[in-house]
Design a protein around this nucleic acid. Structure first.
Lengths: 276, 276
DNA sequence: AAACTCGGTTCCATATAATGGAACAAAAGG
DNA sequence: CCTTTTGTTCCATTATATGGAACCGAGTTT
């Protein structure tokens, strides 16, 4: 369900707005803001581009970049363009491998994949977008590495909406206010009001749909995974092309999806008690 | 060929030594050193653990961690343990998707995989270890996401040794001095002298072997990819279980591997000229 | 050629942000 | 209840980041 990073689906790259907390994080904040800028840029920026984008004085920017490059977090090509560095891959690789949420969810995802025969996703909510932590797909003819770590707006994905539905209203409205809506498809819920309505339904029935709201021809059923005591809020989904995912079929999948989600929550609770 | 992150093959987690440049990167340097510590830790550390590991005063450490957590680069579980944050996954996902080296190499990897029918790796050298950028495998029954971004010591992998062989002697010996050797298997070249000898051979014949030097039962042929003008030094390899990779077979694979490597270098050169 | 721009790098006095010791708070445990 | 361990907050001191300006090299223009 996450878009393959190659296909352009919007006017430009600004998929989701820069989400740097901007709360006082001092020097570090500027550094990661810079990294974020470099990582989000459609085509690798050079010094002057960043100069314009950040609006910082030359000296400061130059030193910051130099430090980031020295740390291997950003790479500087000999032709003067900045690209995200390899060190990030190493960090992320470890982060992924050790992520306990993913680890406990894994067997359940496999089982869910076996019972439904369709693609299964695991995602977590991060502010207003969901980050995909895992994916199980049968015929993985196409490359799929790219999917893990990919993020998509919460308001137009099944797991995103399912996760949002767990928030209390104050938090929910606060996040909605921070969202920048974009109509990826005709079905996208592109207004906060529509989203809130859908979330009311999701709360009522206990699971969420994505009816071609992010990618045309792609539908899914999703259930939230909420374990506040463990600081986990995310979800899982079963995704399929529309012709294979009629409303009856989606309804049929809802039950195993919810069952898997509940099982994962239970497992998390089980591993939280005897922690250490 | 890269170890699946779960299996313990050494006494402990300290696979490769912390490689923070430690050259003056000021505040940022400490931040990523901290991140590195958190990412490398076998089991998620808590505040006091990090206090001991870093030796920093409580106040400073606490503030640094708070900043990192605020930026989403480190997560703080409600039970007080620090884990690498999701933001890293997002960064890495973008880094991977946009990496131009990987993009130009991709078709060649696919072709090489088709001609040999075995697993193909793409890696780049980063100081003394190689980071895997891509992998093409036929029957990917087991999970493989984890492989991308994984790193392994350069001295005991095919692509690692191939890449090392491109360095001039001064640089090479400097890096050797920085390596911490560890005998993963009986075949591991665990002394700098042995490594240098092998590298001499690699230089002579133009490609490298890994004869079960990192993982028992796994062999590979590798060729370097060196494009100094583009700042790229890495390699590709064909990997197979030992019973399928006799010395004749490895020799036979060497030619297509080298051809693919050369083709990639040519492609890189092609895209470097008309840059912008 | 000299004069000009443009992209990038270096320098240095100043102000700001990180430092770290110590006090404070809150659990664990004896 | 008192002690120990673990985590958080405060604040004067100091080191560090800042940013304006000068500098450099390479292309362009006159």
């Amino acid at each position: 369900m996450p878009q393959s990073s190659s296909d352009p689906h919007g006017p430009d790259a600004a998929d989701v707005d820069a989400q740097s907390a901007a709360g006082e994080t001092g020097t570090l904040g500027k550094a990661v803001a810079l990294l974020d800028l470099v990582a989000r840029a459609e085509n690798p920026p050079r010094f002057t581009d960043l100069l314009k984008l950040t609006g910082q004085p030359r000296g400061s920017l130059h030193r910051q970049l130099r430090h980031l490059v020295l740390e291997g977090v950003i790479d500087l090509s000999p032709d003067g363009v900045y690209t995200p560095g390899l060190r990030l891959l190493q960090f992320a690789s470890r982060a992924w491998a050790r992520n306990s949420f993913r680890l406990v969810a894994e067997p359940h995802l496999t089982r869910l994949h076996e019972t439904t025969g369709e693609t299964v996703h695991l995602g977590v909510l991060r502010d207003c977008e969901i980050v995909y932590l895992d994916k199980i797909e049968s015929r993985q003819a196409v490359r799929m590495h790219s999917q893990v770590g990919n993020s998509a707006p919460a308001y137009c994905t099944g797991v995103g909406k399912a996760a949002l539905s767990c928030l209390d209203d104050a938090d929910l409205t606060a996040r909605c206010a921070r969202m920048v809506f974009h109509s990826y498809t005709p079905g996208t819920l592109a207004r906060a009001g529509d989203l809130m309505d859908d979330i009311a339904n999701i709360r009522a029935r206990g699971f969420a749909f994505d009816l071609e709201e992010h990618q045309p021809g792609i539908r899914c059923v999703a259930a939230a995974i909420h374990a506040p005591a463990a600081g986990i809020l995310g979800g899982i989904s079963v995704t399929a092309p529309a012709f294979r995912a009629g409303s009856e079929q989606l309804d049929a999948w809802a039950e195993p999806v919810c069952r898997a989600a509940n099982a994962i929550v239970a497992d998390i609770a089980g591993r939280l008690g005897p922690r250490r």
